[in-house]
Simulated assay, not measured.
Amino acid sequence: MTIIEACDLRKEFPVRVKVGRWRRVRRTVRAVDGVDLRVARGETLGYIGANGAGKSTTLKMLTGVLAPSGGTVRVCGLRPVPDRTRLARRIGVVFGQRSQLWWDLPLRDSFDLLRHIYRVPSAEHAARLRRCRDLLDLDAFADTPVRQLSLGQRMRGELTAALLHGPEVLFLDEPTIGLDVVSRQAVRSFLGELSRTGDTTLVLTTHDLADIERLCRRLVVVDHGRVAHDGSIADLHARYGSRRLVVADLDSAPAEPPVLTGATLHRVEADGHRLVYACGAASAAQVVGALAGLVPLRDISIVEPDIEEVVARLYRSPAGEPCTAASAGAGLTGAPSPGPRTSPE
């Protein structure tokens, strides 16, 4: 069942731009430019983009904060702006820089007030709160006023507040921004558990791509208001030429790095004692097996593709076009060389 559906979604903002010394002219900036999006119930979707790409604007239209300039959008079968009050009871929202908690009240009292605002039955509220207390370890600071909480503690409180009324969709905008390592891990673990149950649809926007890799099977990348990629992270790696690396540490440096079928030499390090190969048609296991028979191996490791590098490559490509085989392997070579060298990446 589709719970979020957007068709040709657009949002334009008028801006005044300085021209010359005194004159200003009015121009229109299209922040979201024809986004089509369908999200199934229970799905966890990563929605990412560079600053100004339109991801936060899209979320605001999906939650009814902003009215679209064009196109259609429905969330939980409702139109976000005309049906804003009804929709608010069926969605939860966590914005990293905004709070839905009462600043001067203890965290526990904020939760109780939200129960009355959303008219949640006492038993349901207690059950959901108990689950969040266990998974997010809230008891240690539940009686502390919100203004005295650390950022990590407040974010755990924000997540709890957004879930106490049992939303069908949870929108998360930069939920781990500014958090320390421990708090970030706690939030990720909680969202991972929430995703595994399949009871709540999650839509996550973030600049921390580690969140996306750990939580989302599907990734939508927006660039200049348009969808540049919609698919799995594996599809993104394949489309933009990302490849696994096999790092071989050797007991002694060979006169020439071996030429391997289905893999290319990526770089040579440590005066020839470390060879790095990029897997192509050959699997990592095949590359390791070939190297074992050609050079004296001391250690071997496999480096997975870095999603940050792939997304950066997407933004550098013209209009989000896929990388060609030549551009993806730019600087890689499998040809023998007269001695140890370092190929440009």
Rank of each mutant, 00 (worst) to 15 (best):
R267Q: 09
T200C: 15
G289R: 10
H224W: 04
I307F: 10
A140S: 12
R316S: 13
V187N: 10
E321H: 12
D137N: 14
D223G: 11
V169C: 00
W22N: 08
T201D: 12
R119A: 15
L209Q: 06
L135Y: 03
D249L: 07
A53H: 11
R188I: 10
S110A: 01
Q97F: 00
G64S: 05
P318R: 10
H116A: 15
E304P: 02
D8A: 13
S122E: 14
E193W: 10
L78H: 01
R298G: 07
D173V: 10
T160P: 03
L250S: 06
P175I: 02
P80I: 04
L202S: 05
E158L: 00
D143N: 14
G198Q: 12
L151F: 05
P305N: 05
P338S: 05
P296K: 13
E168M: 01
E304Q: 05
R98D: 01
D173F: 03
M61G: 04
G54P: 13
E213N: 01
L62Y: 03
I300Y: 03
F111Q: 03
R21S: 09
R90P: 01
T72D: 14
Q148Y: 13
D199K: 11
T72V: 08
H266I: 09
G64C: 05
R130K: 14
V276Q: 08
E345C: 05
I3M: 05
R274V: 15
Q148I: 09
R128C: 05
L59Y: 04
R90C: 00
L314R: 06
F111S: 04
L191W: 07
V187Q: 14
R16Q: 13
L219T: 04
T63M: 06
